[in-house]
């Protein structure tokens, strides 16, 4: 297939070869934005989940607010942050982080809530202290749910990073936006394909991590 009116092929492998440096740079940018946002999201979510678990009444308002944040389209959130933090990486990280909160908090709370009452009672009966029970029972048993939350948050964030191209960042999204503005199909395809590949690799990575950290959850009878 060739571009209408032009004779450039759809994929210009030469361009890819000439721009490997740039592709590597954008890979790091994409990964960096994703990692910082998800890690920050995890830290904030753990804090909020601790609050929600200790004071149950705070859980509905916490999910309500993070749910509304999640609903605001990213382009709008980047724009709304401009007058506050400017047009930079901070802006992107704040917005991306805020999108991870709902998913991670829900999974943290559901994971801890999902620990069977009988396990908690047995742990008490065996003589665990409250702290011991939390770290040795509740956290490991919630791990599959927690990792599942991180997995969804990460894959979602990889997709969203592409939109930060409007802030001059974008990771692979930079190629997509540049390609759209210059009608250079190769760049669009490279941006989209690499972004999907990155999301899939991270997805598989999390599945592998979950198996590694909770072998007991997969070996059914």
């Amino acid at each position: 297939m060739t571009l209408v009116g032009q004779s450039t092929p759809l994929i210009d492998w030469d361009w890819v070869g000439r721009n490997l440096d740039q592709i590597v740079d954008r890979t790091w940018q994409h990964l960096g934005l994703t990692a910082i946002s998800v890690l920050l999201g995890l830290v904030i979510s753990v804090g909020l989940a601790v609050v929600a678990l200790r004071w149950r009444w705070t859980y509905p308002p916490i999910t309500w607010v993070t749910g509304l944040l999640y609903t605001i389209p990213s382009l709008a959130l980047f724009a709304l942050l401009v007058p506050i933090v400017g047009l930079n990486a901070t802006n992107a990280v704040i917005a991306l982080t805020s999108y991870t909160l709902l998913i991670i908090i829900r999974n943290l709370v559901a994971g801890i809530d999902g620990v069977p009452a009988s396990v908690m009672e047995a742990a008490d009966g065996m003589g665990y202290t409250r702290q011991g029970r939390f770290w040795r029972m509740e956290v490991p048993l919630a791990l599959p749910a927690i990792i599942a939350g991180l997995r969804i948050a990460t894959v979602t964030t990889v997709g969203l990073v592409t939109v930060t191209a409007v802030l001059g960042l974008g990771g692979y999204g930079f190629f997509i936006l540049r390609g759209l503005n210059t009608f250079f199909w190769t760049q669009i395809l490279v941006g989209v394909v690499l972004s999907v590949v990155l999301a899939t690799l991270l997805d598989v990575g999390f599945i592998w991590l979950e198996r590694l950290l909770s072998p007991w959850a997969r070996r059914g009878r």
Partner: peptide
């Protein structure tokens, strides 16, 4: 989940212009 909305939009644009 793995397909970014922005990517779908860009690909759709590419194909329709083609």
């Amino acid at each position: 989940r793995a397909l970014p909305s922005f990517g779908i939009l860009a690909i759709s644009f590419l194909i329709l212009v083609q």
